[in-house]
Amino acid sequence: MFAWYMGLNLAQAMIMVEVYSHFGFNSGPSYRIYWATQVIVMIVQTLASTEILHRALEDYPGIWELVWRVILFAIIAIIGYAWATANSKDGWGLWAVHRGYYFTFAVAFVLCLLVVRHYSISIDPVYKVLLGGFCLYSCGVIVADTLVKSLFLQNFSRYSDVWNGFELLLFFAVLLVWVVALRHPVRVSASSQPSQATGGAYESVSPQVNASLREMNDTLRKFFGKQAA
């Protein structure tokens, strides 16, 4: 899916070069074609990053269960926000949705990564860089989308150049980091024997923890019993 995302980004860039040279940057068709292709890129970005996170958490199905719920909630929030804002009268509806998407994306994936950290799960550095790149790019887009409206409202004539340049620079920076990260092989998952590993860890840990907890509980129960008496 990540390869699809990269391919689609490239294809979108090539299509837009043709469209802009044919119709011009500020024309209606350019605007419609850009947003139509952008929606596809955004959907594929979500799928690609979800797939990366799934791969990273392959050995932790319980945590993946928690994490996909966060992503699902984010998707519902994006759809709801898009529904409410896309038809706004001031002509900035699509920009608001675009920014809303990247904002929700960044919040959802940063939350997922925080959940992963909370459970002290060590994920492969390659996955970390890929997910971090997506989040970094999303944060940049949030700023760029806000900046473009601000510049337009201040009657700055080259607002579109600033927006284009900022996003392009950011994308190339993220791309560079991804290229460097993908030169290293991804660690092989230990999920080939999941049940044995899980059962083994449980069997060794559980009796010790249980004994400690039971002792703690018994003492507290005795104390509270005495207090009640």
């Binding site: 904002f103 940063v110 925080l114 989040c135 944060c139 949030i142 700023v143």
Partner: peptide, 16 residues
């Protein structure tokens, strides 16, 4: 929004 982006980036760095 810039503040929110910075906040998200800080959380990202901490999480990674």
């Amino acid at each position: 929004f810039s503040g929110l982006a910075v906040l998200l980036l800080t959380a990202l760095i901490w999480a990674l």
